[in-house]
């Protein structure tokens, strides 16, 4: 589904990603871990198409097309979803209005009519149940006055409504207490199918107790320095990153 080939990117003159290679197939869950400043969030932003990042080389093949040729919204229309580490407030726009606009813009791009209100309502109701969200939430303004946990839940709610092929969860666990974490993880698990893929970016092993990955990658100084199965995450939990980063530094020296 997604094949990243020697991706190099940064901000202005500062190269952050220094040649990323990663392949993700439908049905898989990949975890990307690594110490602060290793480039995890940059990778997520570059895949989603955030403009301030300058891509200097490589490609991001998504189902046969290079995402780098597409605008952020075109990538979204193709089924790429980013759950933001810091979701943005949009004052005066209700959650339901935002999601409706989002769904209908995507349908428009695919040459479809707007989703009938009846279907939309039904779908909203289903997904709210899935994520234990109460009704009053729909009429609140997008992320305005939301707690950290509510913002993250709102991200996963949008993901549930948009049914993306590739979901990238950027530090979705940060700011969540253990109950909220369980609900969010539970939601993500229920949304898994054999046709979609999930990338979980996280600092801690904690989230991976709930969303069990097929593969774990360690990102360090803009490169993937180690990949393995879910047991790698446990090993990191016990031993920290030092043993990997020291190895990498030695190699690059």
């Amino acid at each position: 589904m997604l094949k990243i080939n020697n991706l190099k990117a940064g901000i202005e003159d500062n190269q952050i990603l220094k040649g990323i290679n990663l392949e993700i197939k439908a049905g898989e869950v990949h975890a990307i871990m690594g110490p602060n400043g290793s480039g995890k969030s940059t990778l997520a932003s570059v895949i989603a198409g955030k403009e301030e990042y300058e891509v200097e080389g490589g490609e991001i093949d998504f189902e046969g097309q290079d995402l780098l040729d597409l605008t952020p919204e075109e990538r979204a229309h193709k089924g790429v979803f980013l759950s933001f580490q810091y979701p943005v407030e949009i004052p005066g726009i209700s959650v339901s209005n935002f999601i409706k606009t989002s769904i209908n813009e995507r349908r428009k791009a695919a040459g479809l009519e707007s989703m009938p209100a009846k279907n939309l309502l039904k779908m909203l109701k289903e997904k709210m149940e899935l994520l234990s969200i109460d009704k009053g939430y729909l009429s609140r303004n997008m992320n305005e006055g939301f707690s950290g946990g509510e913002k993250k839940r709102n991200e996963i709610f949008q993901m549930a409504m948009l049914e993306p092929k590739l979901a990238i969860l950027d530090e979705t666990d940060s700011g969540l207490d253990i109950d909220a974490l369980r609900i969010v993880a539970n939601g993500v698990n229920k949304l898994r199918t054999k046709d979609n893929a999930t990338v979980v970016i996280t600092h801690y092993q904690r989230l991976l107790d709930y969303i069990v990955p097929d593969f774990v990658h360690v990102l360090y100084k803009g490169r993937i320095v180690k990949s393995g199965g879910k047991e790698l995450a446990l090993e990191l939990e016990q031993k920290g990153y030092d043993w990997i980063t020291k190895e990498a530094d030695k190699q690059w020296a």
Binding site: A48, E73, A76, F84, V88, I90, I103, E105, L162
Partner: peptide, 17 residues
């Protein structure tokens, strides 16, 4: 904000919209 626009873009909403 650029970040508001990018957030909308990421949800499939073009810049004008």
């Amino acid at each position: 904000g650029e970040d508001q626009i990018f957030y909308c873009n990421q949800r499939g909403i073009g810049t004008e919209a």
